[in-house]
Amino acid sequence: MAIRLTKPDDDSAIYVYEIPVRLWHWINALAIIVLAVTGYLIGSPLATVSGEASDHFFMGYVRFAHFAAAYIFLFGFLGRIYWAFAGNEHAKELFLPPIWKLSFWQGVWHEILWYAFIAKEPRTYVGHNPMAVLAMNALFVWPSLFMIITGVALYGEGAGYDSWQYTLFSSWVIPLFGQSQDVHTWHHLMMWVIICFIIMHIYTAVRENIMSRQSIISAMVSGWRTFKEPLKK
């Protein structure tokens, strides 16, 4: 399957993911990998290095990578929220699943049947399917926000009392959880929630790419959604 960045020849193709969304998606994916690996290493550092302390700065670099990726993640998230307002209608899906609509829940139910091998035919979607929207909102958007708030609060502890991180976040987040150690534990647990989401996300993206009626993976590269059969209007 060749992936092209320009409009496909197919006339039914629809431009779904605009450039900022696609850029954010892949930069964010990279940031999350860095955050998860370095975060794990902060909790469970590698075996000790020998020699003089002044010859090494391993934990320093690990923490630096974590903080740098965290800032990319934070500002990426803020930028993505901005794009939910500035971008096309699909840019909003992630943040506002229409949980007040019956048709949305009917769509979720259909996806459950489809994934339970009961429904034989997949439906066609221009944007995400309802189950995907729900999963991304519950298992990615909110956990991300949680990671940002607890993460900045933990960073503020090192930045000190006069830092904006401490004033705006640490000062209330840490007492809210009890103490610093609890914030660490929750921050750590939520990493695993996001990792579980990523496993499901990659699996369903690959599966839908093969088994559903529309392109998935190439759409996040080129932005264009193509359909295996003409779209029913």
């Binding site: 794990y40 909790g43 469970s44 994934y115 091998f117 534990t185 750590h188 647990l189 990493m191 695993w192 929630v193 990792i195 579980c196 496993i199 499901m200 699996y203 599966r207 088994m211």
Partner: peptide, 23 residues
């Protein structure tokens, strides 16, 4: 946090593998 997390990731990973096989 790690034992809980690795456990959950293993369950999700196993479920995904099984689902992929059935698919």
């Amino acid at each position: 946090a790690d034992t809980v997390g690795i456990g959950s990731a293993a369950v999700v990973g196993g479920a995904v593998a099984a689902h992929a096989a059935v698919s």
